[in-house]
Design a protein around this nucleic acid. Structure first.
Lengths: 197, 197
DNA sequence: AGGATGTAACTGACTGGTTGGATAGTTCTA
DNA sequence: TAGAACTATCCAACCAGTCAGTTACATCCT
């Protein structure tokens, strides 16, 4: 074992491509979540990441490439952490709520993506998961586990909106927001009512 | 009546401060809706408005001042056109849906506003209308016209989210969207279910 | 063991183009 | 002709992206 390398790792000053990559991604996630693509500044990202701006271009190619990396990482984490359950949609909605309460920046990221990305650019992972969920919902409806008032895509759309409704209110309403548990309860309850439960 | 002025108005070539103001506002509304504050370009706005960039600064002071004017105009139109009815919330939700179907840019505008505006800046008009609506909802609940499962602020938040749910989906889901009437029906029905109707 | 060497990680300084905003001067019209 | 409406032109700051060069480190050679 290399003693020099080991000690350097402890005080964190050695060269480490992977660590630098990660630090850039973390800094970029903050910056993009806060300011969007057009508002983000690559110099600020480099400063916060504690590295030179050129590293950012070496690892991610461009500002847009960096945003793609940030957004893809978020989507992967989100899909893995929240999952889906066509047979228990209120609980699913609760998990969506929890995720974005824990990571408010990620909801902003998703919104920037929707606003700033040209129509064409779609993530394969999202498209695939989407199709899978629509199928699962259809089956659950056929099996009578989910009422058929709404089409699968309507259900998905409504539940997503309801789960994030508190965070997407205009700032003027923010003052009136109740505590987290109350907000969560409203989300779960609303989805239950949608499903006649 | 001034004949010269009248004719000139018809072919639109005379000087007219009010017309120029309006054209700037229209062009700016498009630009800001499409690209947000950080992404908007004042030169593009001036070009589309068919006037010199300096006029924009003469009338609206700054890029931010122009955005404020754009956003305030949208809010006024929205409040006047959509209104509110605590005793018939499904219909209200339908009107919200209709408004944003007619003016998809305005929903984007509202989203940019939420993302790009610092917390502090709140519109008095919105705050006032908000308080009024919360009061009306509370009364309707006391009178038993609206069920009390949800607090007034929760109702407002949920209904707003549901009414705009189709437009706030990520682009990956856009392909699966049904026709307008179907979408509208889903919105109205969802609000009815929230209210046990 | 210790010096030479190749290479990946990293840096500082720079650039060409863009951007919000300013200003001095011109044209129109009441 | 006074003043409002409007234009042409300019500018300093900024910004994404580049590049020539430097530093650290692993491996090999003797």
């Amino acid at each position: 074992m290399q003693l020099t390398g080991w000690l350097a790792t402890l005080d964190g000053m050695q060269r480490d491509a992977e660590r630098t990559r990660r630090q850039i991604l973390v800094a970029a996630t903050e910056e993009f979540a806060e300011r969007g693509i057009a508002g983000a500044r690559v110099d600020r990202i480099a400063t916060v990441a504690g590295c030179n701006k050129a590293m950012l271009y070496a690892y991610y190619g461009s500002k847009d490439g960096l945003f793609d990396a940030v957004f893809t990482a978020y989507v992967e984490l989100y899909l893995a952490e929240v999952g889906f359950d066509a047979e228990d949609l209120p609980t699913y909605a609760g998990r969506v709520f929890d995720y974005f309460e824990r990571n408010p920046g990620h909801l902003r990221l998703a919104t920037w993506y929707r606003l700033e990305r040209p129509q064409g650019a779609q993530l394969d992972a999202v498209v695939a998961v989407n199709a899978e969920r629509l199928g699962a919902l259809k089956e659950a409806q056929s099996a009578g586990e989910v009422p058929a008032d709404f089409s699968p895509v309507a259900l998905l759309s409504l539940i997503q909106s309801i789960a994030t409704s508190w965070s997407t209110m205009n700032p003027e309403y923010r003052a009136a927001q109740p505590a987290r548990t109350v907000r969560r309860q409203a989300v779960v309850k609303a989805v239950e009512l949608l499903l006649h439960r």
